[in-house]
Amino acid sequence: MFEFNAHLDADYINEIYGGDLSIVQIMFNSFLEESIPVWNEMYDKIVAKNYAEVGRLAHQIKPSFSMVGLTFLHPKIQAFETFAKSGPAQGELLTQYQQIAVDVNHAKLVIEEELKRMEDYV
């Protein structure tokens, strides 16, 4: 059985996809292709002070983190979404974004690495 990186919630991944690595690969690719660009786009929205859009985008991509086993990030994105929708000061929102971005950037690398490992495994 494929063993996921400890950074990912393997139990959760297996529970959702029933151990089907082909669907896990589809989800991981989708995460990189769909969610990461939206996360990056949020930075521009913060700079443009379009906080409602920041909140909307956070809400849009929030479930995708859990779907690739990044369950620990879900509450952080949830809190960020709530904060963005509360009409925050730009500096505070940007700080929070940059703090989470450290986790997201690392998670992106993990997902990329896991995709390579899965390709070799299958």
């Binding site: 669907i23 589809i26 989708s30 769909e34 849009q60």
Partner: peptide, 11 residues
């Protein structure tokens, strides 16, 4: 939502 859609599609 794209990922939910793809997941459900596969299932």
């Amino acid at each position: 939502e794209v990922m939910a859609r793809k997941s459900l599609q596969r299932l």
